[in-house]
Write a protein that binds this DNA or RNA. Sequence first.
DNA 1: TCCGATCTATTTTTT
DNA 2: ATAGATCGGA
Length: 784
Amino acid sequence: MLSNSIVLNPLFAGLNTEQQIAVSKTDGPVMVIAGAGSGKTRVLTYRIAYLLQLGVDAFHILALTFTNKAAREMKNRIGELVGFREARNVWMGTFHSVFARILRAEADKLGFPSNFTIYDTDDAKNLIKTIVKELNLDPKIYQASLILGRISDAKNNLISPAGYNQNEETISDDKKAGKPSLGLIYTIYQKRLTQAAAMDFDDLLFKTNVLLHNFPDVLYKYQQKFKFILVDEYQDTNYSQYLIVKRLAATNENICVVGDDAQSIYAFRGANIKNILNFQKDYPDAQIVKLEQNYRSTQIIVNAANSLIHNNKDQIFKTVWTANESGELIQLIKASSDLEEGRLIAQQIFEDKMNRQAKNTDFAILYRTNAQSRSLEEALRKLNIPYRIFGGLSFYKRKEIKDILAYFRLTINPKDNEAFNRIINFPARGIGKTTLELITTEAARLEKGYWDILCDLPQNNLGINAGTQKKIREFVIMIQSFQSEIEILNAYDLGSKIARASGLISNLQSDKTPEGISKYENIEALLNGMMEFVAKENNEIQDEESLKNLTAFMQDIALLTDADEKEDEKIEKVSLMTIHQAKGLEFPYVSIVGLEENLFPSIQSIGSRADLEEERRLFYVALTRAEKKVVMSYAESRFRWGNLTFSEPSRFLEEIEEKYLASSNIKKTYSGSASNPNPYKPKTSTRFSSPQTRTSIQDNESTAPKYTKIQSKDSEITNRPNLNFVGASIEELKEKMLVEHQRFGKGEIIKIEGIGSNKTAFVLFDEIGEKQLLLRFAKLRIVK
DNA sequence: TCCGATCTATTTTTT
DNA sequence: ATAGATCGGA
């Protein structure tokens, strides 16, 4: 069993026997089936720390995680255990980021430049739309998102365009579905990606497989390099990922996978639960370790989750149990509408916070779809509870950011047609639709990139008139001037130059709407990020020499995900996110909202048992995020697609054994509070709790529920009627005043600077921290 | 070429 | 509901 040296090793002191085995069995294949809350992350970090302690070179360890954030956190914890010098050298990251790095190093073998572009989902969809158009196919039948899904499926199962077109089954499936051209689209799509020196997300895995398959010397090299491989969230790997791992681990077989079949929630994007179920077949001598003790949650929560998941047929025998206290029953809230649901949940959080001295950060609200966040946000705002939404449109998905990034992309890789499309006439420079069509047609004919056609224009003007030709020439010269400076300027210097020279900055500066200002600020934020990037000490594994240039910056941010966005400031906030995003996280108090048929389980899943079971696992994941208390809610009616729809409680609610549910009579009449509209005067933000103001807002909203209200045409602000944002006159504003901004919420003026039209206020906002506002733009309402 | 009016997809989850 | 795309007229 365990040797003495292990028992006496302080690293093992805090681990139970099973965990100790999982950490210490460093030779040969190991699969850890880790129930929810059973210390999975702990095992992974300790295992790596132990390897380092044994003298394994950090460069020989590869750890694949589900998010970059998970990798970062793990690295930190390992650093704390065995020192950061070593920890930083471990290869740790998502499949996509780790293998993107390897692909860049080996790109020439695949016929790609090392600075290839990574197309995101939008780029990929746009490319598909272009192809569908070119083929004169009906875009309603050949919907970009559906086609991309199909292509993605193929790639995740390592089916190339050729393979796709040879497969009788797919061909006849597509024909039956009325989409016989799918194979052709896939073929062209892939050709265009190569021409654009671009890879989509799935290519990063697909091409890695090609690389490891076609180049035995490369495979050998990485097999020697990665002597120890660890994979987190193994239940959510797809076939393509599975095969990469299998190939890399083939010689040493020092592979440790950690996962929980009960938490597999990504089958919709190709994750294959069989990878975990078949591990023993691939490695007959594998050691299987089961972690079944839950350290996270109360008995009520663990047992309730167990009672739910037992309704699934496909699962690995496992009993999750806990020695924790029994805890509180699960609370179930019934609301009449989504708006009321929001109010009741917010109110419940408010009470729990008061009664238990809990912090905002102790609370999470989890939902099935992002669209559900609206009503919750509104309700939280009214109770002055700060919150943070994860997901939604992330920083890098905003238009203005994508615009400037497109300039960066075209500068780095002029073959990047999607970047080209985005910026060729933005800001408007008189290169219109007609001209563009000439260019794209010619590009398709010659199988060249759009940029190349522009560069050829002096020889072949395609009948473009002289004026437009001049404009094109100016554009070309501008981009070329950026290109010539990639190796000379650092990322920040070149980035700010591009922001100005492209006209993006002046374009936004002329936009005086709040949206325009916030866009301008976002560009500023991006440039600040670039400055940080340049200033930051190089703690990546890349060679010290690697420049902090634009190329490096783009590679740094290409695969960032929502979960990686920097956490802002010090204000403690309630977390709002989808259950998918909550994977791997834990909170003392968790609310799971929208437990209605057709929403959760989602309507798409109801038809098939496999899909339904995935939804159930999703609910299982949600429940097991909670440490102390779970609140569940559903609404009898809800706005969806702008329509009021009626709904039934989710079938999952019946599947939780009743004894774990509080027998609350469910309908807490919120209307009862009418006599006392604001019974819970928030203590948290006494600064702004001028009750008159708030209650007046509340009264307004609660007496006139949204859906009965006739929306006026100038809707922009109708969400918040009676908040008169005409803008206080500049002279009225003084330091220390409490003000409210339409977008940023309430805040205090810290100081006022400047004169005349340049007068600027520094406002510390409750929710988003300090902002500088040019008073001639900012519409502020004086609160006090 | 530009602007406003109208149409349309979106809402399941994401690297 | 709403943002983005598309269309049509000036």
